[in-house]
Amino acid sequence: MGKSANITNQIRTLRFQHNEMTQQNLADLVGVTRQTINAIEQNKYPPSLEVAFKIAQVFDLPVTAVFQYQ
């Protein structure tokens, strides 16, 4: 348990660039809870491939533009 140090993401920046989309709006579009989006943003939970692709799809970006593996 704890931070998933290897996977970072740009979700927070992308949300603000998309009319300051709320975590709840993104959660509804992706089909997870707001708390899960919050956990992903804070690198506390690495999402499944499916959720990662869905998030990237919402921002109309390739998944590698949203998530980075370090």
Partner: peptide
């Protein structure tokens, strides 16, 4: 009550 998502399922499994 929201549907249980993948993170919650993982938490429960662990």
């Amino acid at each position: 009550q929201e549907p249980v998502d993948e993170r919650e399922k993982l938490i429960r499994l662990k």
